[in-house]
Simulated assay, not measured.
Amino acid sequence: MTLDIAGLSLLMGAAVGVVLALTGAGGGILAVPLLVFGLHLRMAEAAPIGLLAVGLAAALGALLALREGIVRYRAALMIGLTGMAVAPLGVRLSQLIPNGPVMALFALVLAWVAWRNLRQGRRAPSPVAPPSRRLPVCAMNPTTGRLTWRAPCTAMLGLTGALSGLLSGLLGVGGGFVIVPMLSEISNVPARGVVATSMAVIALVSVGGVLGAATQGSLDWAVAAPFAAGAVLALLAGRQFSSRWSGVRLQQAFGLLAGTVSVLMLVRAWGG
């Protein structure tokens, strides 16, 4: 029976790693539903396992991207350290709030992610980006590749970190679904740089959530270890196809999948 659980955990972790490699933001949001429905875990049990797997896979992806020089590491440190500080609070809340409400909140977050991906997938891509006269809050110097740090930029990066940290500890998500759209909105960092920076942040934020869960004794290593191994191995494999499979159709497919899972999560939460 233990081998069956380990094998299933490995396969589910692999699915998370593939999605993380392709989207940079979607792996964590699917890890917890897989554990809830596949292994019938409670939210408080599934959240730290999903966070460990996503954090390790994201750390590997961030290291590979760092070698390419596309990680905005100072912004990642700002967001990540803030998230690390807030994540244990989310873990504590997950232990205090009943399973049903936490699952319902997760379903609502997942529904928002689905709506956002489907909406973006319907937009026709423009071959030429329209010129913008207004600099973003965190403007990147195209020559140096560094962000121009001002008070509004620091505040927005800190807010992004706090929100992603709270959700990572509470729901077991990496926070990429928050980090990627926020960085895209407040900066002019290219898409690959946003995804790479998001992975670096997820790796940092996950540390706080996993340590908080481990110290509180809510991390089942028998399930967590194979799940995390599957995610890391699949991330390495998925990177080979990320450039070919990215795009509008991938966004739409992920949006449909996220929407379906959100409905299932709401049904499970309603039924207790």
Results as ranks from 00 to 15, higher is better:
residue 238 G to K: 05
residue 266 L to R: 01
residue 269 A to D: 01
residue 253 A to D: 00
residue 263 V to M: 05
residue 243 S to M: 08
residue 241 F to A: 14
residue 226 P to G: 07
residue 269 A to M: 05
residue 242 S to C: 15
residue 260 T to P: 07
residue 226 P to T: 08
residue 248 V to A: 13
residue 238 G to I: 00
residue 247 G to A: 03
residue 238 G to W: 02
residue 242 S to G: 08
residue 253 A to L: 14
residue 263 V to T: 00
residue 268 R to E: 12
residue 247 G to V: 01
residue 242 S to V: 13
residue 226 P to I: 08
residue 236 L to W: 09
residue 263 V to S: 03
residue 235 L to I: 03
residue 244 R to S: 09
residue 238 G to E: 04
residue 237 A to D: 00
residue 265 M to H: 06
residue 253 A to T: 11
residue 259 G to I: 06
residue 253 A to Y: 11
residue 256 L to Q: 05
residue 261 V to E: 07
residue 230 G to E: 02
residue 239 R to S: 02
residue 251 Q to H: 08
residue 261 V to I: 15
residue 230 G to H: 05
residue 252 Q to C: 08
residue 259 G to E: 12
residue 238 G to V: 03
residue 244 R to I: 00
residue 249 R to D: 10
residue 235 L to N: 14
residue 241 F to E: 01
residue 232 V to W: 11
residue 254 F to Y: 00
residue 249 R to W: 14
residue 254 F to H: 03
residue 255 G to N: 00
residue 246 S to R: 11
residue 237 A to V: 15
residue 262 S to N: 06
residue 238 G to Q: 11
residue 233 L to K: 04
residue 264 L to R: 15
residue 228 A to Q: 05
residue 258 A to C: 15
residue 246 S to D: 07
residue 265 M to G: 04
residue 266 L to A: 14
residue 229 A to Q: 10
residue 233 L to D: 09
residue 235 L to A: 11
residue 263 V to I: 12
residue 233 L to Q: 10
residue 250 L to C: 09
residue 259 G to S: 12
residue 249 R to L: 13
residue 243 S to Q: 13
residue 259 G to H: 07
residue 262 S to D: 00
residue 226 P to L: 07
residue 241 F to D: 04
residue 263 V to P: 07
residue 265 M to Y: 07
residue 239 R to K: 15
residue 236 L to I: 14
residue 262 S to H: 02
residue 260 T to E: 05
residue 238 G to A: 00
residue 262 S to G: 10
residue 252 Q to P: 00
residue 267 V to T: 11
residue 253 A to Q: 03
residue 255 G to M: 00
residue 247 G to S: 01
residue 257 L to D: 08
residue 255 G to D: 06
residue 232 V to M: 07
residue 231 A to Q: 03
residue 245 W to P: 02
residue 256 L to V: 14
residue 229 A to K: 11
residue 227 F to I: 02
residue 250 L to A: 01
residue 245 W to N: 00
residue 247 G to W: 05
residue 236 L to S: 11
residue 263 V to W: 03
residue 267 V to Y: 12
residue 269 A to C: 07
residue 258 A to W: 04
residue 234 A to P: 03
residue 253 A to K: 03
residue 231 A to N: 08
residue 263 V to D: 09
residue 256 L to G: 15
residue 240 Q to W: 13
residue 251 Q to K: 15
residue 266 L to K: 04
residue 241 F to I: 14
residue 242 S to Q: 14
residue 251 Q to D: 05
residue 229 A to W: 00
residue 263 V to H: 05
residue 262 S to L: 05
residue 269 A to V: 03
residue 226 P to K: 09
residue 249 R to T: 11
residue 254 F to M: 12
residue 257 L to P: 06
residue 257 L to H: 09
residue 244 R to T: 02
residue 261 V to S: 05
residue 269 A to F: 05
residue 262 S to Q: 08
residue 257 L to N: 10
residue 240 Q to T: 14
residue 227 F to W: 02
residue 241 F to K: 07
residue 251 Q to G: 08
residue 227 F to V: 11
residue 228 A to G: 06
residue 241 F to S: 12
residue 227 F to N: 04
residue 251 Q to N: 09
residue 250 L to F: 09
